[in-house]
Design a protein around this nucleic acid. Structure first.
Length: 209
DNA sequence: ACATTAAGTGATT
DNA sequence: AATCACTTAATGT
């Protein structure tokens, strides 16, 4: 049995019976930094729950374009997979590890019964949606109104929030991929943010001020 | 010293 | 905002 999973599930206030079920039914999965945990190609059917580390959720469209949606932190479950998996659809997102991470993969088939049986689980699921909803809305806004400068700054702030650090170790190239734009565009906007005194940057490093 | 990778910039669409 | 072409700067071998 997984000690770490056990501790986290307890800290969420889950019922002992529920914890026992989750632990016996789920499986452990380790993901190294920059590797993909879930992609549209994977069979799906499992909801990832983060035990350790930090991952990012990217929306994938059929033509292979990907857009960053939000970060997934410790003791969070992926809201995207909840919607996908409940209807037995293939995942339409990609889950990539930002840092070495550990996951507990839960077969989607059990969620229905747990939501009915366990109030704490029901609350957890609703909360997962709730915490993502506003964030997702602002993300959608910034994408549809295509203000790349706002989008970039939001991305930087999200990253600061998720990592708990003002220093971001990313190249313009990597950021461009997350926002589905070109490196040149990011470089220009970064220069602008620097001139506005919002950030400072050197090679492979961005500091939020 | 040389090659490679990251970032800056003007011009064009 | 995207692309091209080129420059400059930082890093690795």
């Amino acid at each position: 049995m997984n000690e770490l999973a056990n501790n986290i599930l307890h800290s969420l206030g889950f019922e002992p019976d529920l914890i026992r079920e989750i632990l016996t039914i789920g499986r452990f999965k380790k993901v190294r930094e920059s590797n993909t945990a879930v992609s549209p190609e994977t069979s799906g059917g499992e909801v990832p729950f983060v035990l350790k580390g930090l991952l990012k959720v990217l929306r994938s469209d059929p033509s292979g374009h990907e857009v960053f949606l939000y970060y997934l932190e410790k003791s969070e479950a992926c809201a995207m997979s909840l919607t996908c998996c409940l209807e037995g659809k293939k995942p339409e997102y990609r889950l990539v590890a930002e840092q070495d991470s550990e996951l507990w993969m839960i077969p989607a088939g059990y969620l229905d019964s747990w939501i009915v049986k366990y109030p704490s689980f029901r609350r957890f699921i609703f909360l997962s949606y709730q915490t993502r909803f506003d964030e997702l809305l602002t993300t959608i806004d910034s994408i549809t109104f295509s203000n790349m400068d706002d989008r970039l700054y939001k991305y930087l702030l999200d990253t600061k929030q998720a990592t708990g650090s003002y220093a971001i170790n990313k190249t313009h190239e990597q950021i461009a991929r997350d926002l589905d734009t070109s490196r040149v565009v990011i470089s220009r906007l970064m220069k602008q943010l620097e001139r506005e005194g919002k950030i400072e940057q050197s090679r492979n490093l961005i500091e939020i001020l």
